[in-house]
């Protein structure tokens, strides 16, 4: 069967089945199990209303349980067993093996570098642009253009930036902007930038910063708009200059939004895979955890160490997860 036909079938079936499920289960609930008639009408209606939420929740939570919650525990289990020894429990052996690998430490070190640079740079750039475009007549157009990379895949962005970093042999004309500028201004020979250890990490980070700045900008821009105009006008009347207004009046009022943006980008950074995979594949000391894990799982076929690496990512995400849950619960109250 052709995939397109299959897709149409799946859409129809999926939509049909889920609508059918909700409709039918409600029908049965209201008319067969607890009919709203007779002497027990009131009691039945209350019973039906107690059951109904679970009907509504079941498909989504079953899917999430299977596709997100269960894998966390299964990965934990996989990281503690050895596939080659008939799934024997090996304790922390996989973790120990992973820690003995220099590539792991390189990935961890790079990940921390990413965590340090990308959220900070994106948030600051986003905040800067949001503030600059705030009162601009063509601000919305400017923002749309800077926001645009959000729609571009990490792979597409990698190709775009690979062209920027491209290097041609000395003597021929450079077609990568970076080398063109570099050779023009320094008269050095061109560099193959992506192979220059340590600094190449930053070249990869620029790709993500380029993408995430738009995200930070959109949200911070809305937060700036949300600041009550009166507080700013009051500051103007009090004689505060633009800088003071920004740092003393606006910034404090959007702190919580800045934190949200920062953590959201942090999570994206922890999961970054495509960019490294497409641009260097972890060579030249650019390895990161997600790519290291992918490497272990699908190239070395070592599920134990791969799962251990995945657990390390989970561990890094955990503080943010807990913080999110706590603040969500606080809001519900």
């Amino acid at each position: 069967m052709s995939p397109i036909l299959q897709a149409v079938l799946v859409i129809t079936l999926g939509v049909g089945l889920s609508v059918g499920y909700f409709w039918l289960s409600n029908l049965i609930l209201d008319n067969v199990l607890f009919p709203a008639k007779g002497i027990n009408a009131g009691r039945n209606i209350n019973l039906a209303n107690a059951v109904r939420p679970w009907l509504f929740l079941f498909p989504a939570f079953a899917a999430m349980g299977l596709y997100l919650a269960y894998p966390v525990f299964e990965t934990l289990r996989l990281s503690l067993i050895d596939r080659d020894k008939a799934d024997a429990f090996v304790g922390l052996a996989n973790y120990r093996q992973m820690m003995d690998e220099p590539k792991f430490w390189e990935a961890l070190k790079n990940n921390f570098l990413w965590l340090l640079v990308v959220p900070a740079a994106s948030t600051l750039m986003g905040l800067l642009i949001a503030q600059l475009t705030d009162r601009l007549r063509w601000g919305n157009i400017a923002k749309a253009l800077i926001f645009m990379p959000m729609a571009i895949s990490f792979v597409g962005a990698s190709v775009i930036w690979k062209l920027v970093y491209d290097a041609r042999p000395e003597g021929t004309e450079q077609i990568g902007v970076l080398n063109a500028l570099y050779t023009f201004f320094t008269s050095n020979s061109p560099e193959v930038w992506l192979t220059v250890p340590f600094w190449n990490n930053f070249l990869l980070m620029i790709v993500l910063i380029w993408i995430q700045t738009g995200f930070a900008m959109v949200i911070l821009s809305a937060a700036l708009r949300g600041i009550p105009e009166e507080t700013i006008e009051a500051a103007v009347v009090d004689g505060a200059g633009p800088l003071r207004i920004f740092f003393r009046i606006k910034m404090p009022q959007i702190t919580s939004t800045i934190i949200v943006v920062w953590t959201t980008i942090t999570i994206t950074v922890l999961k970054v895979f495509d960019i490294v995979f497409a641009m260097t594949n972890g060579q030249w000391q650019t390895q990161v955890l997600a790519n290291y894990m992918f490497d272990k799982l699908f190239r070395a076929n070592d599920w134990g160490v791969g799962s251990a690496a995945a657990m390390v990512i989970m561990l890094l995400v955990l503080p943010i997860l807990i913080w999110n849950v706590v603040s969500a619960r606080r809001e519900l109250r």
């Binding site: 922890l270 791969g306 999110n324």
Partner: peptide, 28 residues
């Protein structure tokens, strides 16, 4: 809808929001 455990389920959703899908690859 009002039902017991609603707040917990919302918290679960918030938690799953940030679970890295890397963990899901092999098990799934």
């Amino acid at each position: 809808m009002e039902f017991p455990g609603r707040a917990i389920l919302i918290a679960v959703v918030v938690a799953l929001l940030v679970v890295p899908l890397q963990l899901a690859l092999i098990p799934l």
